[in-house]
Amino acid sequence: MTRAPIFAAVLLALAACSPSGSGSGTAPTVQAAGAICRPTPVGRQMTGCYLTLTAAADDRLTAVESPAANLVQIHESRMEGGMMMMRELRDGLALPAGQAVALEPGGNHLMLLGVKEPLVAGDTVALTLTFASSAPVEVTATVGQPAAPGADADAAPGAH
């Protein structure tokens, strides 16, 4: 009976070629680009951060932490009854495989709450992004004014 060893060898070869890992325990990856956080308004301890995420496989941004704030939430902004409303995405943000997902003013974004020290243009903010499947990603965001959504010069900048 030589089928069992051959079957085992085929399974090992397939596992080694699998995108989910090669036996080394590596997780799928997410790339982060263009991270920027707005300066904190005078007297306020909150601000928005924006970046673009691209996942190698379907994934979900589930949490974000920063030593600069007591809490970071994943938010969405949308129009409801003629007013811009913002709410936390408690289940995180879906990241379809191979698609760039932009977190930008007027849309999905990160909200830093309880900012410990005022953020001024030129500062940097460390962010740790946690995903459902991928390994955490460390990002350094610059503090400054983000481009308007879609980088259209005629677009009005969002509130955050």
Rank of each mutant, 00 (worst) to 15 (best):
A132W: 01
A153K: 12
T26F: 05
L119S: 02
D152P: 08
P41V: 00
V143E: 08
G43D: 06
G122S: 06
P118E: 07
V30K: 02
S22A: 05
F131I: 05
E104I: 00
A57R: 10
K116G: 06
F7V: 12
P146T: 07
L110D: 00
N108Q: 11
A121M: 08
G114L: 09
P96G: 08
V139Y: 11
P105N: 06
E104Y: 06
G106Y: 01
M85I: 09
R78T: 11
G122P: 05
S20N: 14
F131C: 02
S77Y: 04
P105F: 00
A126Y: 10
A68D: 10
E65W: 03
M79H: 14
M85E: 09
A126K: 13
G158T: 03
T128Q: 14
A151N: 14
G150W: 09
E117I: 06
R38L: 03
G158S: 05
P96N: 05
F131Q: 10
L89E: 08
L119R: 06
A9P: 06
E138R: 13
L61K: 04
P136L: 08
L71N: 10
G43E: 04
P136K: 08
L127D: 07
D123K: 07
P41L: 02
N70A: 09
T140P: 05
R3A: 10
T142R: 15
M1A: 07
P149E: 08
A68E: 07
L12E: 08
Q145N: 08
V10D: 11
A16G: 06
L113W: 02
L110Y: 03
D123S: 07
A35Y: 08
R38D: 02
Q45L: 04
A4L: 15
A15M: 10
D152R: 13
E88H: 00
A151F: 08
H75D: 11
G34P: 09
T40A: 01
A32R: 12
A121F: 01
P39A: 00
I6M: 09
Y50S: 00
T62V: 14
P28A: 04
L93E: 03
E76V: 03
A35K: 11
G34T: 12
P136S: 06
E138S: 11
V120N: 10
G82F: 10
F131H: 05
E80F: 12
P5Q: 15
P157G: 04
C37M: 07
T142K: 14
L12Y: 04
A132H: 05
P41Y: 00
A32W: 11
F7T: 12
S20I: 13
V115E: 03
Q31W: 03
A35N: 12
S66H: 06
I36V: 15
T130R: 15
P39T: 00
N70T: 05
A63S: 12
L14Q: 03
V143N: 08
A100T: 12
A69E: 03
P41E: 04
V30F: 00
A63Q: 13
H109R: 14
R38T: 06
E104H: 09
V72Q: 01
A13F: 02
R38G: 00
A4N: 15
S24I: 02
L93Y: 02
R87F: 01
M85F: 00
D58H: 10
T47H: 03
S66Q: 10
